[in-house]
């Protein structure tokens, strides 16, 4: 039987207390600049968003309407469509981004440094290129009349006549998700390459000596060790997918027939095109709640002992 020894209560002298207070003050002062920014540009706008969601806030009116914006939102068929589209985008793009990034990273991290850097650059290029430039290129690729995709598919015999990729409700959302994937995989690949490079090689060698297959090494050794990175990528990709906006604005304006309408674009449309700031804020609050719930689930499911 062991007995737990409780530490004796330490007596803190006034001088130590003063030193500790000085340390605390210094710490808060160092933190102050970022704290001011965080409060001013994150917390305050969030609070304002919550407050205005209870008002009929337009260019000419600012009157209290309680939960009316929320009631209207859940009766709004376009919001419903936007919600479904957004969730489809998230459910498709997040797993695909994670799996594709992990696959690419696991292929390139073992290469020579020069080759690894080359591939990292290639996959990261769409991220730094900027969404407008990327979108213009994709718009050209998907063009109904002289687009590269139709040209290639026709020459391969996959299609007999041009497909209006962005103008057809059957294809438009898939096109948006495809473009989103190209702009989303860059950062996860870089992170996975780094995480995989940091996996303890002695464990891998030991497992191999013990006769573990490549798959066993991956699932039993590497996967647990890259789990914190995976969790980060899941959360970031989920948030980015939920906030998909620029592609929609530049390519489809939510059409055709609202088939690419997303919550972010619908918020923008209501707030900036119709000047319905209150209604837009209410949708923003719901979007924030949905993202928080998704992120919480991901944290829960991907929770590990070390991360």
């Amino acid at each position: 039987m062991t007995t737990r020894a409780f530490p004796a209560r330490r007596v803190v002298s006034p001088a130590m207390r003063a030193a500790r207070r000085r340390e605390n003050i210094a710490a808060y002062l160092f933190m102050a600049p970022s704290l001011v920014f965080f409060l001013g540009f994150v917390i305050f706008p969030m609070g304002m968003c919550l407050v205005t969601s209870f008002f009929n806030y337009t260019m000419t009116d600012f009157s209290w309407i309680g939960l009316a914006n929320y009631v209207e939102m859940f009766q709004d068929a376009i919001f419903g469509k936007a919600l479904v589209n957004t969730i489809v985008i998230v459910l498709v793009s997040v797993p695909v981004t994670c799996m594709f990034s992990l696959w690419v990273a696991s292929l390139i991290y073992k290469m020579r440094d020069r080759h690894t850097s080359f591939f990292r650059c290639v996959f990261y290029l769409p991220v730094v290129t900027g969404s407008v430039a990327v979108t213009v290129v994709w718009k050209w690729i998907f063009n109904n009349y002289y687009g590269v995709l139709n040209y290639v598919f026709k020459n391969l015999g996959l299609i007999t006549r041009n497909i209006n990729w962005l103008g057809n409700p059957d294809y438009a959302l898939a096109c948006i998700i495809t473009i989103l994937l190209t702009t989303s995989v860059g950062q996860p690949i870089v992170l996975y390459v780094s995480a995989l490079s940091n996996v303890d090689h002695s464990l891998i060698e030991a497992a191999s000596v013990d006769g573990a297959t490549n798959m066993q090494v991956f699932w039993k050794i590497k996967w647990p060790q890259v789990m914190p990175t995976t969790l980060y990528i899941l959360v970031i990709t989920t948030i980015n997918s939920f906030q998909c906006f620029a592609l929609i604005q530049l390519l489809t304006s939510g059409g055709p027939n609202n088939s690419t309408q997303t919550i972010m674009y619908y918020i923008y449309y209501n707030a900036f095109k119709l000047s319905r700031y209150g209604y837009g804020s209410a949708m923003g609050i719901i979007l924030a709640i949905i993202i928080a719930v998704f992120s919480a689930i991901q944290f829960r499911l991907a929770k590990t002992d070390n991360g």
């Binding site: 109904n144 209006n164 962005l166 103008g167 057809n168 409700p169 438009a172 489809t252 059409g255």
Partner: peptide
Amino acid sequence: GKLDADAGI
């Protein structure tokens, strides 16, 4: 087919 309509442009 005498005229086209395009929701993508």
